[in-house]
Design a protein around this nucleic acid. Structure first.
Length: 630
RNA sequence: GCCACCGUAGCUUAGCUGGCUAAAGCGAUGGUUUCGUAAACCAUAGACCGCGGGUUCAAAUCCCGCCGGUGGCUCCA
């Protein structure tokens, strides 16, 4: 609603003719005049529809505000359509006008001029600084409307699950979960799996400690919170960016090598697009929404939208299936509830490698899923997280699917290599009928999913993705949704938590060698060796080397390097310059070894293997470095 | 989003039953030191005590609101 307030000597009007939207009025309303009053010209707008009460109360507030400043006791309400170009329907307008008059009448003398009539009027404005004011009253979206929650999210609340453990030989043990008690399986050796069940299906311990990775990600100058953004949108310092970049390179390379075609797609999508709209309703997540100059859009929460929109325009034959698409989404967005966010574990903006495979039929989908599980295992192992030892498998399926495809589920468990948690849904709430996840169980018994693959039976039809089958018929493919490593940030979370676990066990915490921001640190004992060290450093081309050329004592330099978890610390003094050997402190072995440069180079090359490589993300000389955190 | 807790120099913390110029270590800067495998020495700078409002003669300290964070609920990659 727009209002124009004029402190008037008088306002005088008379109706001349009715318009098609005129309200019915008594004879006495056809003329009116008021002296020493506040004239309130109003236009009720389209966006006020459905929010009558709110508009009235905010309107009254605005008017009272001015009335008090001007110290008047008479108010003339005057409908004036020309204040707005998008007027509301007449009923809403009359309702609001009447409401305003009624509320204001409690304390003031009010005259309401009729709505929907042509009128002649005379007005005298007082002309002082406060005498003319225009205001817009906007009732914010969300104040009255409910938050939009997908049907899948709502349905989830009523979902009933059966839980069980499947052994590698296919034996299924149904579990009884009562509070913290889990019965029906002898967990004995496998505390993580037991914690996992309790986390998924039972009651958790209360009053847990903080996750270790949050301090680590800051202390190592990897990642930090960004107060200037929305919660869950982080900043990456050079070392963190490098580590994340290497992980991104590695996962993408492996996924391309599996046969997925890498593509790039937009991060925002039209909320009114029919296929997308239905998709949203079948996905259990909250979206970021925003307005562009032309549309209402939501931010992608995975790569599905871009890849499906692309796939629907592709010409596909059964001969080309399975078709594999891939995108590293930087970023995917989910408007997670405020209290769900933590460090690198749960974010609102995250980087997810996402690959979809279009499959001819269920048999092909099953085969493809197995191929992809091998890919995922290889990716995760390559990163430095051991599968199956360090992650727990869960397979979730609808009751019908589980019963009809038990053989496939047994194969998945066998292929994974250790007993898995099974969840059976009593009904299908999502677009997928089967999904599995690799879960990391942190030291406090909390589970976080990394890898996941899903069998989707709905989106092919919803997006009108078709292939021509042998018989010449157009058919919708089965679609698999795989994240071959899980979100990159969550991989970093896992690596940091595992390092904290090493420390807990009394070992020195480490980063996987290929991810260590500095792989080799040269420590000259005094300035005299600096030139020699510079020559040595140039000899090493296959590793990230930096040089501590600061004015600190040797022990201080060692200490600094240890605190950075640098895998190889090379101390060079006069002895080394003369002998040609190097004194190498190896973190992993917690020992100090004498070796010639050539041998060090060999060891480094071996450690690196064929993992992706990037240069040192900071100046080579420590004296040139700025501090990011503290 | 809900419940509980937290927010003091770049970092880690002291002060917080209201009362002098808010204290220290690390780090930074300047100087001394040129050093042999996890902390050399001296000095200097550095604080809208998260933000806004309130109570009070007086607020880092008490109260309210907001922002940020942690844990739990719920949920996920």
């Amino acid at each position: 609603m727009k209002i124009l307030l004029i402190h008037s000597d008088y306002l005088k009007y008379e109706v001349t003719k009715e318009t098609p939207v005129a309200e019915d009025i008594e004879e006495e309303m056809k003329k009116g005049e008021m002296e020493e009053c506040l004239s309130v010209f109003t236009a009720v707008e389209e966006k006020d529809e459905g929010k009558v009460d709110k508009v009235i109360s905010e309107g009254v507030e605005e008017i009272l505000d001015t009335v008090e400043k001007l110290d008047v006791d008479k108010i003339m309400l005057y409908p004036y359509a020309h204040l707005s170009s998008s007027l509301s329907d007449p009923d809403t307008a009359v309702e609001i006008l009447k409401g305003l008059a009624e509320e204001l009448r409690e304390d003031f003398k009010v005259h309401r001029s009729p709505f929907g009539w042509y009128k002649s009027f005379k007005l005298s404005c007082k002309g002082h600084p406060l005498s003319e004011l225009s205001k817009e009253i906007v009732v914010e979206e969300g104040e009255e409307e409910e938050e939009m929650v997908s049907k899948a999210l709502e349905a989830e609340e009523t979902m009933e699950s059966t839980w069980g453990i499947m052994d590698v030989d296919g034996t299924f043990h149904e579990l009884k979960v009562d509070g913290k008690e889990v019965q029906g399986y002898d967990f004995n050796e496998n505390q993580d799996l037991k914690d996992f069940v309790r986390y998924e299906a039972g009651e958790k311990e209360s009053g847990s400690a903080e996750s270790s990775h949050i301090d680590l990600m800051r202390n190592h100058e990897l990642v930090d919170y960004e107060e200037g953004s929305d919660p869950g949108n982080l900043r990456f310092y050079p070392k963190g960016r490098m580590m994340k970049g290497l992980l991104e390179d590695y996962v993408s390379e492996k996924t391309r090598r599996y046969g997925a075609m890498e593509i790039e797609s937009p991060i925002m999508y039209d909320i009114d697009h029919p296929a997308l709209k239905k998709h949203l309703d079948r996905f259990p997540a909250r979206q970021y929404r925003m307005e562009t100059p032309d549309k209402n859009v939501f931010l992608r929460f995975a790569a599905c939208f871009g890849q499906f929109m692309m796939a629907r325009d592709m010409t596909l034959s059964y001969r080309s299936l399975p078709v594999r698409l891939y995108e590293l989404t930087r970023y995917s967005f989910r408007a997670e509830q405020r209290g769900e966010l933590t460090g690198l574990r749960r974010l609102r903006a995250f980087t997810m490698p996402d690959s979809h495979a279009l499959c001819k039929d269920l048999d092909q989908a099953k085969d493809e899923m197995m191929t992809r599980m091998d890919l995922a295992k290889s990716v995760v192992n390559g990163i430095g997280i051991t599968v199956p030892d360090e992650l727990e498998l869960v397979i979730r399926a609808t009751q019908d699917y589980f019963e009809e495809n038990r053989d496939q589920i047994e194969k998945l468990v066998k292929n994974y290599g250790k007993p898995a948690l099974i969840e059976i849904w009593d009904d299908q709430f999502f677009y997928f009928i089967l999904k599995y996840e690799f879960n990391f169980i942190d030291p406090l018994g909390r589970a976080s999913a990394l890898v996941t693959d899903q069998v989707d039976v709905e989106q092919g039809e919803r997006y009108d993705i078709n292939y021509v089958d042998e018989d010449g018929e157009e058919k919708n493919p089965y679609i698999l949704h795989l994240s071959p490593s899980g979100a990159i940030e969550r991989v970093m979370f896992t690596l940091l938590e595992q390092a904290a676990m090493q420390e807990e066990r009394g070992e020195k915490p480490t980063f996987p060698y290929w991810l260590a921001p500095t792989q080799v640190r040269f420590v000259p004992i005094s300035d005299d060796q600096l030139d020699h060290v510079k020559k040595l450093e140039k000899e090493i081309e296959t590793a990230r080397v930096d040089i501590d050329d600061t004015d600190r004592t040797v022990s201080r330099k060692i200490r600094a390097a240890e605190k950075e978890w640098i895998p190889f610390i090379v101390v060079v003094g006069q002895d080394e310059v003369e002998s040609g050997d190097l004194s190498v402190r190896i973190r992993e072995k917690e020992e100090q070894v004498e070796m010639p440069l050539e041998e060090l180079k060999k060891v480094l090359k071996e450690k690196q293997g064929d993992m992706p490589y990037r240069e040192v993300p900071l100046p080579k000389y420590l004296s040139k470095r700025a501090t990011f955190v503290g």
